[in-house]
Write a protein that binds this DNA or RNA. Structure first.
Lengths: 193, 193
DNA sequence: TTCATTTCTTAACTTAAGTGAACGAGTTGT
DNA sequence: ACAACTCGTTCACTTAAGTTAAGAAATGAA
């Protein structure tokens, strides 16, 4: 489990044994069961999540309807905006599979950052990369139709199609479950004709 | 002009005079005319932009149609994904007004970051905040209709409605210019009846 | 100014997403 | 085993966005 973490980090910065031990001593690995809600709307938290295995999702409760906006799987990190803005959370985070997480809180990060500049470099690089990736995702979303988004998702994250319920995928694609159902039927029809 | 920059920075970290001078010595302020194209599709660059005054926009050329995905105005920063990924740019950046920019390149930033850890902290904080803000923007986009997005834009960035051409606003909202025109007419009609 | 181009709007028609309801399959809890 | 619930699909209908085309208004250049 540690190997997974340090393998990931080594792609960005190289850590000494001291630095690795400092991280391990923080006791940050957590196993959580499918269905666990990590964060609720209205709650405050300082916790960030890094998925080692499994899948978590973020969703809003608008007009008592669930709107899923994000899935985070192996090697993906999520720092909820409420941690940055120090406001109550606007959304829920739940585990849609049994999941192994790293949970770190912002106080802890601040301390490690000031003790180990290398760690701050890591955080900076990861934030910059995530920002770039997310900008591209957003641009693709804006410039394409629901059908194109779905086809795009099949290409880029085929695992999600398998492991995530349809109605959650639908709002992730910005449409209603019925529309996704219909859209899929339309595509099957196309591939036949 | 420098006051604007240091006033902005002082919200996040406090700089010594030495640090301020180090930044000024880099000669990073640029004035560019309306219509100037800062970056073209297919080009490589290491430059990031920070808008002191004016407005720049990012747009794709898809099927020889312009798709505008972002506007950056006073006190907003843009690091194109191509700088992070070291790939050719997928989009254009142009100035839609006479604009005063700070243009920094990633080599320069790397050098300043290693000399002044405080600067790296600043970059980390800004990236984290932008990431959080962008996540919320994306979520709002996904969970709302074109009409809601337009109303939302009127609330959050009323200046854009004034300073940006309709057809650019339309693709920013994820729709065609004709649809935005119709949508606006519909809203006027609603407010009458 | 005049001419050309771009931008915005309007309209008629097509296509697809939203809505509300119903149904069967699969799951959970008792 | 049964009831209650969730999930995915389908259908009929409504609403709004895409498409194509045309024309008015604004902008820019010769």
């Amino acid at each position: 489990m540690q190997d997974i973490l340090f393998g990931f980090i080594s792609k960005y910065v190289s850590l000494t044994d001291d630095e690795k031990n400092a991280i391990l001593s923080l006791d940050i690995f957590r196993s959580v069961k499918k269905g666990t809600i990590l964060l609720k709307e209205g709650q405050k938290t300082k916790d960030s999540y890094f998925v080692l295995k499994g899948c978590i999702r973020t969703y809003y409760d608008l007009d008592s309807e669930e709107k899923t906006t994000g899935f985070f799987t192996e090697m993906e990190a999520l720092t909820p905006p409420c941690v940055i803005n120090k406001t109550p959370s606007e959304y829920y985070i739940s585990c849609i599979e049994d999941t192994i997480l790293i949970i770190s809180n912002s106080d802890m990060e601040a301390e490690v950052n000031s003790k180990f500049p290398k760690f701050e470099t890591l955080c900076r690089i990861l934030s910059e990369q995530l920002l770039a990736k997310q900008r591209i995702d957003f641009d693709e979303f804006k410039t394409s139709s629901p059908e194109q988004r779905y086809l795009n998702l099949i290409q880029k994250r085929p695992d999600l199609i398998q492991r995530v319920p349809q109605h959650q995928l639908a709002s992730f694609l910005g449409i209603k479950p019925q529309s996704l159902s219909r859209l899929r039927a339309r595509l099957v029809e196309k591939n036949k004709g």
